[in-house]
Design a protein around this nucleic acid. Structure first.
Length: 467
DNA sequence: CTATGGCACGGATT
DNA sequence: AATCCGTGCCATAG
């Protein structure tokens, strides 16, 4: 049961299948939560801080047996980010240089010590007991400022009512990196809106969007949103702009996704990317470095102590523990498979869409998930799940959904924008159709209208010559 | 009469 | 099986 070569994953139980399916479509953040809960509920699983092989002490970054001593390390899953480099066509996974790519960004604010920084602010407002709880909560923040423990457990641990813990948490949220200690971006945003609305008017629509349709927002389904709230896309885009200018879904990060794209009407997005693509050392002449972000540091593995304990366990406990063990190993397997699939997927996509990544939307090749799935020899729905909900950070620091790589019309839309930007007389939709066909894009008049709407470009008679 | 947006249909995609 | 997307037809605004 222990020899997990990636290839041997094929034959799997239905439980395995089901779990892989759910894991596959999760975001890093969601995955992190999932891992946390499993970790807390299943004693067979443990997270080792060490990234080294316990027997030979070699740095261990890849799944599979330890390369040096080939110790039976294979049940452990390294949770370090997967980094690989794309020189041109071929990839290799870099396990050696991996240290070099520790993300140096994002540590801009008073990074010395976020927990004590916050604690200092709120200390006076709390009684001693609450202060202890606060301190505990604050030590369990992740890099984004989100809480990583669940309040109920904390309450039990400290023998206080849940409401006390929640109360403390609420105080924390109002401290300086506004929204720290939230459980997710949504909560952080809501807290920020609460505070903001004390000093200025916040459009009700924004709150509603965040409250009810956070999903659509993070996935930037603006047309969908416009439809749901029965307002224009323009309106929604304004809201989004407001949100990205005034709110920060990741409290502990000072900025997320720079606004260094003045030319294009920047559709600002936030969200912790699942995949980060960058030039090596940020120099455009260098090859691309692709990093698949994986939550948690260290290695997730079956606790060896648990295994030995299992052998000597009482009969009645044995069954239950055995069960835990199987679940844990299943979980790890699924996780491995998830990572494996995503890695292969991203490799393919990066090679294919390199021009898009480096030169811009115009060069996006319209590719469907089906094509990729054929090339990778996996079921199309696997690709679907792997793609959905994930975001990618491009070298220019923009964060876009992974599904953009499969957008059938993005390139046309970008050419359309280009044309409209260049021509100084407002062209009617019909004329635009002509211009587009000259560029080699054949679309119907009606479709041009839709693209315009998607891009938030006004109709011809309302457009142009604003100053 | 022309330019657009709305509704709805069919085929492709997921 | 459900959803998305391009398109054609028609109503309406200018």
């Amino acid at each position: 049961m222990q020899q997990i070569l990636i290839q041997s994953i094929r034959p799997m139980t239905t439980a395995h299948l089901a779990q892989t399916m759910t894991l596959m479509s999760l975001t890093v953040e969601e995955l992190q939560q999932e891992i946390d809960t499993v970790l807390a509920s299943n004693p067979a699983l443990e997270l080792v801080d060490e990234r080294r092989c316990p027997t030979c002490h070699r740095l261990l970054t890849e799944k599979g047996p330890c390369p040096i001593c080939s110790a039976p390390q294979n049940s452990g899953l390294s949770m370090d980010p997967v980094v690989f480099i794309s020189p041109r066509e071929d990839f290799y996974t870099s396990s050696e240089n991996q240290e070099d790519y520790d993300r140096e960004d994002d540590y801009s604010v008073n990074e010395e010590d976020l927990p004590s920084y916050v604690l200092r602010q709120i200390g006076p407002d709390l009684n001693p007991k609450e202060r202890i709880i606060a301190a505990y909560l604050l030590t369990n923040l992740d890099e984004d400022g989100f809480i990583t423990v669940n309040s109920l457990e904390v309450a039990q641990y400290f023998h206080v009512p849940l409401s006390t813990v929640e109360g403390v948490r609420r105080v924390i949220q109002k401290a300086d990196p506004l929204g720290v200690g939230s459980v997710n971006p949504k909560e952080a945003l809501l807290v920020q809106i609460d505070i903001l609305s004390e000093t200025q008017d916040v459009p009700e629509l924004i709150r509603k969007i965040i409250e009810d349709e956070m999903d659509l927002l993070t996935h930037r389904q603006y047309n969908e949103l416009a439809h749901k709230f029965n307002v224009s896309i323009r309106r929604i885009q304004n809201c989004v702009k407001y949100i990205s200018e005034n709110l920060n879904p990741f409290p502990a990060r000072s900025h997320w996704g720079d606004i260094r794209h003045p030319g294009e009407n920047s559709t600002q997005v936030y969200h912790q990317p699942d995949i980060i693509i960058n030039y090596l050392n940020d120099k455009p002449e260098n090859p691309l470095v692709v990093e698949i972000v994986i939550p948690l540091k260290g290695t997730l593995r079956i606790n060896p102590l648990f295994k030995t304990a299992l052998k000597e366990a009482d009969e009645d406990k044995k069954e239950e523990w055995q069960n835990d063990l199987e679940k844990a190993s299943l979980f790890i397997k699924c996780l491995q498979q998830r990572n494996h699939t995503i890695e292969r997927l991203v490799q393919k996509v990066v090679v294919l869409q390199r021009p898009f990544i480096t030169k811009g939307e115009k060069y996006l090749k319209p590719v469907t998930r089906v094509q990729i799935s054929r090339e990778l020899e996996v079921h199309e729905s696997t690709i679907s799940r792997a793609v959905s909900n994930k975001t990618v950070q491009l070298p220019n620091r923009r964060i876009i959904p992974l599904s953009s790589f499969f957008d059938r019309s993005l390139n046309v839309r970008s050419v359309l924008r280009e044309i409209i930007g260049k021509e100084d007389k407002p062209m009617s939709d019909a004329e635009l159709v002509n211009s587009l066909s000259k560029e080699g894009y054949n679309v119907a008049r009606r479709t041009v209208a839709k693209y315009r709407a998607m891009e938030g470009i006004l109709p011809a008679h309302l457009r142009n010559f604003s100053p």
